[in-house]
């Protein structure tokens, strides 16, 4: 394994553009150290990026907030900008990891690692977050909804890294919110089911709804078809069976050591019904 410590972002990107091997990145290290321990990482180019300033910090630019990929969960939890504009996101973060991991764990690492159970993606999906991807060719913005393409697969090219997450400061404005992570215990648990939701309801009618799930597909995703059905519907006209039918096509839970697929499906359905104020 070849170890590199690029002095800045340019040097890192240049290295990546000529790299022939698989690239690994050490940011906060909370996940990759587990992979090293389990000997999942054998050969490749290893880059220490945790001190690259251009990838760090929470900055407001006009109507957007840029969260650098290296921003830690502790920094997000303690940030005034986040608590002012994204209280829902900040509350969601209290369900992640443990106080010992939030010190080091980064938002970019959580996303780039691409686990189907990663905690931060469902709330970011309902906030219509964008990712800034950077390479020597420049920066491109992609919506988080299109970023993941399969199990631990994404749009990231081999010479590209996540520079940061971009959120509109209006993203949470006027919505009722829900973030629910279901696991075997409260802290330090891997989600069996995660649901993030935003909704606006006026006079018994759903004006707008956004729903995203984690741990139920190959990657966390928005429930587009269900949103389509629910948008602009009177709550009293909602048909539980229709929700069930649409949901069964949008999520593909599996049975594994943490839970079984029937449980996961039922819990997801019930959480959605609860969020809509419907008895299950």
């Amino acid at each position: 394994m070849q170890f590199n410590k690029p002095k800045d972002l340019n040097e890192l990107l240049e290295n990546l553009s000529i790299s022939q091997k698989k690239n690994y990145f050490l940011a906060g290290g909370t996940d990759i150290n587990v992979q090293i321990k389990k000997e999942f990482i054998k050969d490749g180019n290893f880059y220490y990026i945790n001190e690259i300033d251009e990838l760090n910090g929470i900055k407001r630019k006009n109507e957007k907030v840029h969260v650098g990929a290296l921003t830690t969960y502790r920094e997000l939890l303690e940030s005034d900008t986040i608590s002012e504009h994204f209280p829902f996101l900040q509350r969601s973060l209290t369900n992640f990891a443990s106080p010992l991991l939030t010190t080091m764990a980064t938002i970019g690492g959580n996303i780039a690692n691409g686990s189907p159970t990663n905690d931060v993606t469902p709330p970011l999906l309902v906030l219509d977050a964008e990712l800034e991807l950077i390479s020597v060719a420049g920066i491109r913005n992609v919506s988080l909804t299109s970023f993941f393409t399969g199990y631990k697969k994404s749009l990231l090219k081999k010479d590209e890294i996540i520079k940061g997450v971009v959120l509109s400061i209006q993203a949470e404005n006027g919505y009722e919110t829900l973030y629910k992570k279901v696991g075997a215990r409260k802290t330090l648990t891997i989600a069996k089911v995660a649901l993030a939701g935003l909704k606006k309801i006026k006079e018994g009618k759903i004006d707008e709804i956004k729903l995203a799930v984690g741990s139920l597909n190959e990657y966390p995703r928005r429930l587009d078809k269900l949103e389509e059905y629910l948008n602009n519907i009177m709550i009293r006209d909602i048909n539980k069976n229709t929700i069930d039918e649409i949901l069964s096509k949008e999520i593909t839970p599996i049975s594994d050591l943490r839970s079984d697929k029937e449980y996961r499906y039922r819990v997801c359905l019930n959480l959605i019904l609860s969020f809509l104020g419907i008895n299950h």
């Binding site: 909370t30 220490y48 010992l100 010190t103 080091m104």
Partner: peptide, 27 residues
């Protein structure tokens, strides 16, 4: 555990708690 789940290796890094099994020399 050696995987950041148990906290037996907790130390303070620049005053903040971390699991030292997941922190590298370079950090």
């Amino acid at each position: 555990c050696g995987e950041g789940e148990c906290g037996a290796c907790t130390v303070l890094l620049d005053g903040k708690p971390v699991t030292s099994c997941l922190v590298n020399a370079i950090h």
